[in-house]
Simulated scan of single mutants.
Amino acid sequence: MGRKSLILTDAQVRQKIKRIAYEIYENNSQEKEIILAGIYEQGYELANLLLKELEVIAPIKITLIGVKLDKFAPTQSEIALTCNVSQLKNKCIVLIDDVMNTGRTMAYSLKPFLNVKIKKIETAVLVNRSHTEFPILTQYAGYQLSTTINEHVEVQLERDKKEVYLQ
């Protein structure tokens, strides 16, 4: 890959996460519980950061679960949740990933949620590249970024350093 360009600094990433948390709460303030479903690895880390922000601002129960799948071969792999699907009945789910590119990962990640009657599913990403090939809409996006399909967005969500690069 070529040279990396910093597109979001640590402070900007933290601000975007805080804004997304406020939007999630504003749109779901009447709920008794919100389930944050983070797609492993980076989406789960982003969901965990959103959980921490929501716990500060929202007086409702926030539950974090993980979605495990092989992003490169989703049709050949099992798509699993880190909870029992019965716990999701009549709940509001926010499916979370770090970057939305074609919508493929999000589309396949929906599969386990189709086995239970849920109230609604929303989606959240830190960076939306808008190269959609699947009918997936992001309700919450921290940053809209116009890129070519050949460019790569790298999200770093380490403990002391949260940054986004374009390569």
Score class of each variant (00 low, 15 high):
1 M>W: 04
2 G>R: 13
2 G>K: 14
3 R>M: 15
4 K>W: 09
5 S>D: 14
7 I>D: 05
7 I>Y: 10
7 I>F: 10
8 L>R: 02
8 L>D: 01
9 T>Q: 06
9 T>F: 02
10 D>K: 09
10 D>P: 04
11 A>F: 13
13 V>Y: 03
13 V>E: 00
13 V>D: 00
15 Q>Y: 07
16 K>M: 09
17 I>Q: 01
18 K>P: 07
18 K>G: 11
23 E>I: 01
23 E>V: 03
28 N>R: 11
29 S>H: 13
30 Q>R: 13
32 K>S: 13
32 K>V: 07
33 E>C: 11
34 I>E: 04
36 L>V: 00
36 L>M: 01
37 A>T: 03
38 G>Y: 00
39 I>S: 00
40 Y>M: 09
44 Y>P: 01
45 E>M: 15
45 E>G: 06
46 L>C: 09
48 N>A: 11
49 L>T: 00
50 L>I: 08
50 L>A: 01
50 L>F: 04
50 L>C: 03
51 L>V: 00
52 K>C: 06
53 E>R: 08
53 E>W: 02
55 E>V: 12
56 V>E: 10
57 I>T: 05
57 I>C: 06
57 I>E: 03
58 A>P: 11
60 I>S: 04
63 T>C: 10
64 L>A: 03
67 V>I: 09
67 V>A: 03
68 K>M: 10
68 K>C: 08
70 D>L: 01
72 F>E: 15
73 A>F: 14
75 T>R: 15
77 S>D: 11
78 E>L: 14
78 E>Q: 14
80 A>F: 06
81 L>Q: 02
81 L>V: 02
82 T>K: 08
82 T>C: 07
83 C>R: 12
87 Q>E: 14
87 Q>P: 02
88 L>N: 11
89 K>L: 06
90 N>W: 07
95 L>H: 00
96 I>M: 00
98 D>N: 06
100 M>A: 07
100 M>R: 01
109 S>C: 11
110 L>E: 04
111 K>M: 11
112 P>A: 09
113 F>S: 04
113 F>I: 07
113 F>D: 05
113 F>P: 10
115 N>Y: 11
115 N>H: 12
115 N>C: 06
116 V>S: 05
116 V>Q: 12
116 V>G: 04
118 I>P: 00
119 K>L: 11
119 K>W: 06
120 K>R: 15
120 K>N: 14
120 K>L: 11
122 E>H: 07
125 V>F: 08
125 V>P: 09
127 V>K: 01
127 V>R: 03
128 N>G: 05
130 S>D: 13
130 S>M: 12
131 H>S: 06
136 I>D: 06
138 T>R: 00
141 A>W: 08
141 A>R: 09
145 L>A: 01
145 L>T: 01
146 S>N: 15
147 T>L: 04
148 T>H: 12
148 T>R: 12
149 I>K: 15
149 I>R: 15
151 E>C: 06
151 E>W: 07
153 V>Q: 08
154 E>H: 07
154 E>D: 09
157 L>F: 12
158 E>P: 09
160 D>I: 02
160 D>P: 02
161 K>I: 09
161 K>L: 13
162 K>S: 10
163 E>I: 10
163 E>L: 05
164 V>P: 05
164 V>H: 06
165 Y>P: 07
166 L>C: 11
